[in-house]
Design a protein around this nucleic acid. Structure first.
Lengths: 380, 380
DNA sequence: GTTGAGTGTGGCAACGATGCCACACCTGGC
DNA sequence: GCCAGGTGTGGCATCGTTGCCACACTCAAC
């Protein structure tokens, strides 16, 4: 087997063709030390600012480092320090704007703090999720932000001493912190909006209620009814799967069997798409014949006419908040003794339940009802 | 300064509160070796399958590793092997579905090949781009996929022996491979579609033509006119900035000064949004009074009525292709002698120009015209 | 019975950065 | 003039993995 040695040997011969400037290998602390006329230890101290280093020497080292283009090897640092500045981010579907925005928010906050994001798509598959967990473990990430699929993944991470933040939904209260949208409040707001408009037979289109996101939205829907003393018709809670085609079929069935429905509340953007397509296909007039409200505002909802009334989750902020919560843990970790406090310096509109730095934290990011043209008075 | 040592010492005392099972540190090859009754070298050989290892021993080692839950430290491996399995991916805006889809495609292909993606958003800023380059360098990534902003970043990466793939646009032909959409062909297709419908005053809404993406689309627009022997009215090429509000204002100005325009071709999804909003705002009837065609199909375009005629870039595939092109380079690199061939096993519809494994490669991913309701016969 | 090839295993150094410890030097006080 | 204390620097081991090399052993052939 011509292993690595051979590869390296050959690489030089090929250098000008494939990898142009790999003729001189990357500079290390040793090289900086030689250049500055000091020892590697001193270089380390001078660059990191920890420990003694005469001002003059410090300057000389910095100059030398800049001159030869020294970039510290992150892997060596991680190996030595036993913790990296990479954060694992595990989401279900990057092509869904909800997850994309979430990831974008996470990335922004991480980058601002000098961390970076390893992004893995699990397509909602527990197996892929577990594989990602192994990857993150191997990389020694200090924390992971995940829209969780299986409790096992959370548990495994937790066992391995990795800080976990569950985003958007909470599968377990035992492992790490959680950042959620105000699902119940949002769904209640939306439902109440419809009730206020006189609707009495409001169908809820929802995919699953095993996850907190779905369950809480359902609860909000019920709560609004209860507040208005309008009984909930169980038949109007239409369960479907997380797929716009399926949602569309479900809506079709619903409209056929229950022509008395005057409003439709779709529990997320994917289901809303199916619903909207079916209504459009049938030529149902919004909002005259039917009102439509969606949870989770995504771009198409404000482009179509009438524009869709939605509950915005402030998804980007949600992502940012996830990163902040995680970073707070890491900082506490670093600080030896807990100095950082709980620091719920909440970007306006997020409230946090849960105790100090030691306990599990649950952060809620506020949502907002955006009334647009798709919701109007009940025709009845 | 209570440094790292202190942190560790304290960590144990806190273990049950913060990081539950960090009481036992992570198992290493040493631990596996002890468990299996062999030496670390043998463990390495047994697990990696390189070099001798008796079948019985191999089995014993695997069992031991599984029993104690051994996960190799990726950082130590990278340090030792001088190359990681992380790929840097640098894009402009994750919240734009174009970039999100691109990243999703990249991620899928990387994951399938056992690599993972460090995703960084540079918001189109050269400074952020350079910072990301430093990060990637520090992490010793073997390759980077980038929607480039500045040539300097490409050059820097190239100098450091990192394989580069320019995605979507090509800023320089000197550094690494490139994967582009068939911009000219696509724009020509779209323009020709409008010309065929009888339009003669087709405005082009475009942000900039310094990048290949814009320049090629402009070229396609011109080429279609030339083919049809229709002169291009320079005034109808409306330059704006990459921003839907600006695009909208530009469209407004255009429509005011040139009421004779019968069709609008928006060079990307962001500009298309601005155009659509302005047309909608003015109550312009599509396609009766005006036709609209967009480059880059994104979800809202098929949700609105009339749905927008677009050129789909197959963005997800574009991303996948970027990863494939990069991985091919890495494989050649590994293989000591070039065994892998050029292997343009193109997923149907992508054609590659450029020479074998040693030369720079330029791959084009085919696009497709999707005719929808927003384009119709010229009113004239 | 010795030699040689072939087979399997362990020792050890290296990847690059870091921080503890030891030590050299300088200054001031008695 | 000697010692104590402070200041700045270098040596060295370490993080976990890998692969080269050396070596031990088995077996067959001469």
């Amino acid at each position: 087997m011509t292993g690595h040695g051979a590869r390296r040997d050959v690489a030089y011969g090929r250098a000008t063709v494939e990898k142009p400037r790999s003729d001189s290998r990357r500079p290390t602390v040793q090289d900086v030390a030689r250049e500055a006329g000091v020892s590697p230890s001193t270089v380390s101290r001078a660059l990191n600012g920890s420990g003694y280093a005469a001002a003059e020497v410090r300057q000389r080292v910095h100059a030398a480092a800049a001159r030869i283009g020294y970039v510290p090897d992150a892997n060596a640092q991680t190996l030595r320090n036993r913790s990296s500045r990479s954060i694992g981010v595990l989401i279900s579907d990057l092509r869904n704007p909800f997850y994309a925005d979430l990831a974008a928010g996470v990335e922004q906050a991480l980058r601002a703090a000098g961390y970076h994001m390893i992004l893995v798509n699990d397509d909602g598959s527990p197996d892929e999720e577990m594989l990602a967990v192994e990857t993150f473990t191997a990389m020694r990430v200090p924390g992971v932000i995940v829209t969780p699929v299986s409790v096992l993944a959370l548990k495994r991470l937790h066992q391995r001493g990795v800080h976990v933040v569950q985003a958007d939904r909470q599968l377990s209260t035992r492992y790490g912190d959680t950042v959620l949208g105000a699902n119940k409040a949002g769904a209640k707001l939306a439902t109440r909006h419809l009730l206020d408009l006189g609707h009495r037979r409001i169908a809820l289109l929802i995919d699953q209620t095993r996850w907190t996101s779905g369950a809480e939205r359902l609860a909000g829907y019920r709560a609004a009814h209860a507040d208005a003393r309008v009984p909930v018709d169980q038949e109007l809670i239409a369960y479907t799967s997380f797929d716009s085609a399926a949602a569309r079929a479900t809506v079709a069935r619903l409209l056929d069997t229950r022509p008395d429905v005057t409003a439709l509340f779709a529990a997320n953007n994917v289901l809303a798409q199916g619903a909207f397509e079916e209504l459009q296909h049938r030529g149902v007039q919004l909002p005259k014949e039917m009102s439509l409200v969606a949870y989770d505002d995504v771009p198409w909802m404000s482009m179509v006419r009438p524009a869709i009334t939605t509950v915005s989750q402030h998804t980007f902020d949600l992502g940012r908040r996830c990163a902040e919560v995680l970073l707070a843990r890491l900082t506490v970790d670093d600080a030896g003794d807990r100095g950082a406090g709980d620091g719920d310096s909440g970007a306006g509109g997020s409230d946090s339940a849960g105790s100090g730095p030691t306990g599990r934290r649950l952060v809620r990011v506020a949502c907002e009802l955006r009334v647009r043209g798709s919701s109007g008075p009940s025709p009845a």
